Every structure is written in structure tokens, then in C-alpha cells.
Amino acid sequence: MSRKHPIISITGSSGAGTTSVKRTFEQIFRRENVNAAYIEGDAFHRYNRVDMRTKMAEEAALGNRHFSHFSPETNLFEELETTFRDYATTGTGKTRTYVHDDKEAAVHGVAPGNFTDWHSLPADSDLLFYEGLHGAVITEKVNVAQHADLKIGVVPVINLEWIQKLHRDRADRGYTTEVVTDTILRRMPDYVHYIVPQFAETDINFQRVPTVDTSNPFIARWIPTADESMVVIRFKDPRGIDFAYLLSMIQGSFMSRANSIVIHGAKLDLAMQLILTPLIMQLVDRKRGVK
């Protein structure tokens, strides 16, 4: 953690919805004139798309049916921690970009499924913003969580997470339900060991809970909408959180525990604006020397 070079980390599994949360942060940054440097978790995968498929096939031939993007073996956790540590110390660090599709390829000049070269983050940013799978990961070798000043977990209940992943991967990547199901099963041990424990480290978790039947996510025809959901917002340390203000500003909200507030799904953006803006500005003001 760093007073001079703060880090915000958004963490969630594949299909959890971290990209939508990132857009809310971007809105706050623009409105409050915060100059953020960005890194994506995909940049710290160990293998490009072709090499990952090859490695997965090799592991399967050896009897390993659980080789996944969630594990230390397939990610550069040490390099990620180094980037966090370097930024907290110097205000810069190394990152790269994983190119997902043709649109991104046109921007970066790199074929889809590959990485750009490593490059330095800009030296004049107000804070570092991470969005990806492992923003609060802790293993025997690394502790990424300790370097982030504000850690946010995006954690839909698991059936909803699967529905979102199924619909995204079928629509955007052309995968079949069977292929996506196999991916979910293959990732499960690493999901349990490297994704879930992070949400005990996060400062705030946003967990969307459907109010419609999601008993069988593999046959769900639609993703439950915001109007068909509630969101549980859990604060690791509720001290300093003005719950009375939040309850008065967010219609229909209520507290379910001393550290948790429940809101209607359609109010998520408002809730995030109300909760996150002062926290972000505390970090930025502290950096700028405003007391």
C-alpha cells in the first residue's frame, strides 16, 4: 500500500462482470479528473492462446484434467506482484496487453490471441487501476493483495456467474454449451483455491443475487436483468461508512448485517457512485497532500 502511489484492484472470476464495474470507475475518474493508469489481468497470463491450447492438451494427455487460466502455473503472479510493488514505490511499472480480437489487433498491431511487448506505465498517473482475475491473490510465493489500497470483489452468486459466462462465450466466442461447461468443470479446483479466497481479502464485495429461478444455469435462455436482481454489498471494515446516508439515498435498500447493505439491482451504478467516489478521492487527495 502506498500514500503516494495508490492502487485500486477489481477482482472477479471469468464472467463475473468486472468489465461493467470498470466502466463505473472510468466514469468517476472522468468526472473527478483522476488520471488513472490501467492494467488488465489478462496481460499476466503466462501463455498466448495457441500455446495455452497446446499446453492444455499436453496436460490432459498426462491425466491433468484441471489445467486452467486460474492457476499459478498459467499466470505470472510474481510479475504481477512486482508491478504492484514497483508502482506503489515509484509510480510506474511494467505491463503489456493481451489482444483478444481483430478490433484490438488493429489498434496494437498484434494478431489476436497474442501479447504486445512489455512497456512502462505512464509516470504521471494519480493511481493504478487493475481489473482481472487475480487482483487480491495470495499464494505461498506471492501476496498481491497487500499492495492494493482499495480492493473490490465482483461476485455474483455462482449460478448467475455461470449463466453470464455461458451467454458471453456462446455469443462472443462461438463456443457451444458443452465446451463452456467443460471449461467450468476444468477450472473448478483452481477456482476454489485461487479465485474464491480473494474475496476474504477485498475491502468491498458486490454480489448480485437473482430473484428469478436460476436452478439450472445450463439451460437458462436469458441472463437475469438488473430489475430481476438484488445486490448485497459487504464492507470488510464498516467503520466510517455512512449507512444512514446510503439508506436514504438508495430507495428500497436495507441492511442485512452490520457490515452489509442490500439494494435493488437497478440501483447498482448509483450505489457504486455513492460508495466509491469518496473512497477514490480519499486516495487521490492523500496522494496530492490534501488533508
Results as ranks from 00 to 15, higher is better:
V180R: 04
I219K: 09
M272F: 13
D182L: 06
W162Q: 15
G174Y: 09
D237T: 02
E228S: 08
I250L: 15
R239T: 07
A244M: 10
I241K: 04
V155R: 14
R257T: 14
I158C: 01
G252P: 05
P224R: 07
V232W: 02
V196W: 08
D269R: 15
T211C: 04
A220F: 06
V180I: 15
I263G: 02
I241Y: 01
Y194E: 10
P210K: 09
F243N: 06
Y245M: 11
E201S: 12
K151W: 03
F254R: 14
K165Q: 12
I261S: 01
L274D: 12
I204R: 04
L279Q: 13
Y194C: 12
G174A: 10
S253E: 05
T277A: 08
P189V: 02
G265N: 12
N159E: 15
A266D: 07
I152Y: 03
R221K: 12
L268S: 05
R186F: 00
P189D: 04
K236S: 06
I184C: 01
T214L: 11
N205Y: 05
L270P: 00
S256R: 12
H167D: 15
V209F: 00
S215T: 13
E178P: 00
R221S: 10
V192Q: 08
R257W: 01
W162H: 09
M249W: 01
D190G: 01
L166A: 13
P278H: 05
T177W: 08
L279C: 01
E201N: 15
F243L: 03
A171G: 06
K151V: 14
E228Q: 14
V192L: 10
L247M: 09
A226W: 00
E161I: 10
M272K: 14
V192H: 06
M188D: 02
A258D: 10
F254L: 06
P224W: 07
K267I: 00
Y245R: 11
V231H: 04
D242T: 02
P210L: 07
M249Y: 00
Q273L: 09
L274E: 13
T183G: 01
M272A: 12
D172P: 04
E178A: 13
H193S: 12
